[in-house]
Simulated assay, not measured.
Amino acid sequence: MGLTKPNHDLRRDLKSAALALEDAAQDMFRMAKQYGDTELLAAMEKIERLHVEADRLNGYADEVKDGRILRAATE
């Protein structure tokens, strides 16, 4: 059984948000490499948090796909 439209939209939105976080992390890493070690280490902590949040959103998207998270249709 496929996903309902609301659940399909939710999954797509979660995947899109996760991708945006991953892209931001890559951009931050590219910029941080131009600075010194101290700044790079500080940026790496923030980048790690972005990756953790992206992983969490991807996990939620997987739960939507598996039917463990459902979005009710709007009226």
Score class of each variant (00 low, 15 high):
Leu41Tyr: 15
Leu3Arg: 03
Phe29Arg: 14
Ala17Gly: 01
Lys15His: 04
Ala17Lys: 13
Lys15Pro: 00
Gly59Trp: 11
Met31Gln: 06
Leu14Ser: 09
Glu63His: 08
Arg49Lys: 15
Asp23Leu: 09
Leu19His: 06
Lys65Pro: 06
Ala25Gly: 09
Asp27Ile: 00
Gly67Ala: 01
Arg71Leu: 03
Glu39Tyr: 12
Leu14Cys: 08
Leu21Asp: 03
Glu39Gln: 10
Leu70His: 07
Asp13Trp: 07
Leu70Phe: 03
Asn7Gly: 04
Lys46Ile: 01
Asp55Glu: 12
Ala43Tyr: 03
Ala24Glu: 03
Ala54Gly: 09
Met44Tyr: 13
Thr38Met: 15
Val64Gln: 03
Glu53Leu: 15
Asp62Gln: 12
Ala25Ser: 15
Glu45Pro: 04
Ala32Lys: 10
Gly2Ser: 13
Pro6Lys: 11
Asp13Gly: 11
Met31Lys: 12
Asn58Pro: 01
Val64Thr: 06
Val64Tyr: 13
Ala17Glu: 07
Asp66Met: 02
Ile47Leu: 08
Asn7Pro: 05
Asp13Arg: 15
Arg11Phe: 08
Met1Lys: 15
Asn58Leu: 11
Leu3His: 05
Ala72Leu: 14
Glu22Gln: 15
Glu63Leu: 11
Thr74Pro: 03
Ala42Tyr: 10
Ala17His: 08
Gly67Trp: 01
Glu22Pro: 02
Arg11Thr: 05
Ala17Gln: 11
His8Glu: 14
Val52Ala: 13
His51Ala: 05
Tyr35Glu: 13
Asp62Arg: 15
Arg68Leu: 08
Leu57Asn: 01
Glu75His: 12
Leu21Ile: 02
